[in-house]
């Protein structure tokens, strides 16, 4: 039986989510997919569909409005998966840090594997970060990974794991602390 794990890093499909970014980093992500930097030579496909992707590229400082979707998308990605925070904002909050309407970085909500700093990030850095992420992806198991907040424990009926409503909706109690 040959090792399936080694193929993980040969075909990373990415999901790109903009959690309130200024679009600077998003343009750079697209630039790195375009002919000049050609991410596709690593087998990268920009799927836009969480259910078929391995790498979650998040840009932006996570505005309050985007939290729910961030967690929901994260829950909809099948394991093994890697989260890459792209840009200063998503790493630490960047210039928006401590503002009333943003959370300071993606890692408040979901576990982040690779941080790529820069405002905006350069395509070379994105490529480098992705390759780092692939190393991590190869080591991961298929154990379910859980968000840090806005999360309800998943139920398990008759051996079937149900992760349908595990990501909570921001409702009466605001979870910002």
């Amino acid at each position: 039986m040959f090792n399936l794990k080694k193929y993980r890093k040969k075909s990373p499909w990415i999901l790109h989510y903009n959690a309130g970014s200024c679009n600077g980093c998003d343009i750079e992500i697209l630039a790195s997919l375009a002919p000049k930097y050609d991410l596709e030579r690593f087998g990268v496909v920009n799927t836009g569909n969480p259910k078929q992707s391995d790498i979650f590229l998040v840009t932006g400082p996570v505005t309050l409005r985007s939290r729910e979707r961030l967690v929901e998308l994260y829950m909809q990605m099948p394991e093994p998966k890697v989260v890459v925070a792209v840009g200063s904002c998503s790493c630490t909050g960047g210039v928006f840090r401590d503002m009333y309407n943003v959370e300071d970085g993606v890692d408040r909500y979901i576990p982040v594997d690779v941080y790529i700093p820069g405002c905006a990030v350069s395509p070379e850095l994105i490529i480098d970060g992705l390759v780092q992420g692939l190393e991590i992806l190869e080591q991961k198991t298929k154990e379910m990974e859980k968000p840090l907040k806005l999360f309800k424990e998943s139920t398990c009926e008759e051996g079937i794991v149900n992760r349908r409503d595990t990501a909570l909706k921001v409702g009466k109690i605001d979870e910002k602390n």
């Binding site: 979707r69 909809q76 079937i160 349908r164 990501a167 909706k169």
Partner: peptide, 16 residues
């Protein structure tokens, strides 16, 4: 395969 598969919500751009 169905026993091992997780049940998950439909994709609506993360909307709930």
């Amino acid at each position: 395969l169905f026993k091992k598969a997780h049940r998950v919500k439909e994709y609506n751009c993360g909307e709930k």
